[in-house]
Amino acid sequence: MSDESTEVGLPVEQHALPQRFENPGLPEHHPRLTDVDDGAAKRSERIVVVLFMLSALGTIGAIVAYFTVPPGATIASIRLSTMLIGFGLAATFIFAGAASVHWSKSLMNDHEKIEYRHPMVSDTETREQASEMLADGMSDTGLSRRGAIKGAMITAVALAPLGFAVPLIGSVGGDWDISKFRHTMWKKGLRLTHDPTGRPIKASDVTIGSAVHVIPEGLNKLEHPLDEKSKAMVLVIRLDPRDLHEAPDREGWSYEGIVAYSKVCTHVGCPVALYEQRTHHLLCPCHQSTFDISNGAKVIFGPADRPLPQLPITVDTEGYLVAQSDFHEPVGPSFWERLK
């Protein structure tokens, strides 16, 4: 092996010196001021007493604040109440803490002490005895001669958790009907309405460049509106028809430059809510995926991969925006069986 001590550089003559330095042993103890000067010790004692008294005063302060400064009804009055009780509590503990630390540092015996360690491993005799006892125990069970018990026991133990797990798993996922990811409540003729008021939207009221947050009509009357809103929320944007580049198979999904896209980000599902009128870019605030509304909501930047699903829309006889159908693909984040 080339790892000799000469390797580190110095030409060393091998004399009788030891290979390594000796541990010099504990340095001698230096007394503190409080150990040698009675006056200093007395002063320290007084400091500790005063700190504990301040702590007690802090507690009284907190209680007084509790009774005299109720939270009231404004943010300012709540802040005040919070602050005063908090100051009391803080004083209680910070002063008590300072007292204990000061006491231990300045007055308690500060001679370092030594305790010896023993290896964690048990001594050979103990290990042997333990191993013997286990062997005796094993042979008492007779398992080596009665193999059938072993098999049966393992089977029983392996199956036992199922009695708990099956009911739990069976119920914990509700109806386990994941096909719900594929549909929203949008359907032919359902009106687009303002989020959150539910007022229907006239096509003529949507001005060029504006973005309207939309929910399906009747959403608020559902028993659990948020479940449906999480999928069905839509952003309606009106572009100058000259700016709008539509794929051939989607012509007719927009109405006079008005397009409707799912508001659920195709990355991991945040609401894609920031529309920049000048660039026609729609930005997801969560991880900055950016979608180009003039171009089929394609991803132009960020961690999302797929365009936002488009909701085909038109107007009804009264001029209100309505859906032509549901989305043609599942909205929101990808999942394993999305395309199946």
Binding site: L26, G86, F87, L89, A90, A91, T92, F93, I94, F95, A96, G97, A98, A99, S100, V101, W103, S104, K105, M108, N109, D110, E112, K113, I114, E115, Y116, R117
Partner: peptide
């Protein structure tokens, strides 16, 4: 093979209690 320091009671315990109080107090603040 050794450990050098202060006994749990009282030095270490007092410092620990002190630390706990101070952390509690700072969090209250």
């Amino acid at each position: 093979k050794n450990v050098v320091g202060y006994p749990i009671f009282p030095v270490y315990a007092a410092k620990q209690a002190g630390m706990f109080f101070i952390i509690f107090g700072v969090l209250a603040l």
